[in-house]
Computed example of a mutant assay.
Amino acid sequence: MELTKIRSLSDEELKTEQAKAGEQIFRIRFQKSLGNQEGIKKLRVLKTDIARIKTIARERTLSAEREANPVVKNVAPAKSTRTARKNAKKG
């Protein structure tokens, strides 16, 4: 499945596609254990599809979290009083 097609899917559709791919992987592995060598090349394609789906789902959750909790810019820490005390002792 192409990346642009995966990105256009909704969250629910992503979950169903991931479940379908997982089910197909299970069937191919089962057939492989029975001695049937057909569809072994499809395993790699299905695994990459699942990885892409999981990556896009994770990107969406992270972007939603960023929108919900905007990052507060760091404020410069207070100046150290240690150097000020050293200079006061010297002078």
Rank of each mutant, 00 (worst) to 15 (best):
L3V: 10
L3F: 07
T4Y: 06
T4P: 04
K5G: 15
R7L: 06
R7G: 02
R7C: 04
L9C: 03
L9S: 08
S10Q: 10
D11C: 00
D11M: 02
D11R: 00
E13T: 00
E13R: 02
K15T: 03
T16F: 03
E17I: 00
E17W: 03
A19V: 05
A19W: 14
K20G: 01
G22W: 02
Q24E: 15
F26Q: 11
F26G: 05
F26A: 13
R27F: 01
R27N: 05
R27Q: 05
I28A: 11
I28W: 10
F30W: 08
K32W: 04
S33D: 10
S33F: 07
L34V: 01
G35Q: 13
G35W: 12
G35K: 06
G35I: 02
G35T: 04
G35C: 02
Q37G: 03
Q37T: 14
G39D: 15
G39H: 11
I40W: 05
I40S: 09
I40D: 09
I40Q: 14
K41N: 15
K42T: 14
L43K: 06
L43H: 10
R44V: 08
V45D: 05
L46N: 09
K47M: 03
K47Y: 12
T48K: 12
T48Q: 15
I50F: 04
R52C: 04
R52A: 09
R52P: 01
I53D: 02
K54H: 07
K54C: 01
T55K: 15
I56H: 14
I56A: 03
A57Q: 13
R60Y: 10
R60P: 01
L62Y: 06
L62A: 07
L62P: 02
S63D: 15
S63Y: 06
S63W: 08
S63P: 00
A64F: 09
R66S: 10
R66T: 06
A68T: 08
N69W: 13
P70S: 10
P70H: 12
P70R: 11
P70W: 04
V71L: 13
V72L: 11
V72E: 13
K73T: 07
K73R: 04
V75C: 03
V75L: 10
A76S: 12
P77E: 11
P77D: 08
A78E: 09
K79C: 09
S80R: 04
R82C: 00
T83F: 12
A84E: 11
R85G: 01
R85F: 06
K86V: 05
K86Q: 05
N87P: 00
A88R: 14
K89F: 07
G91Y: 07
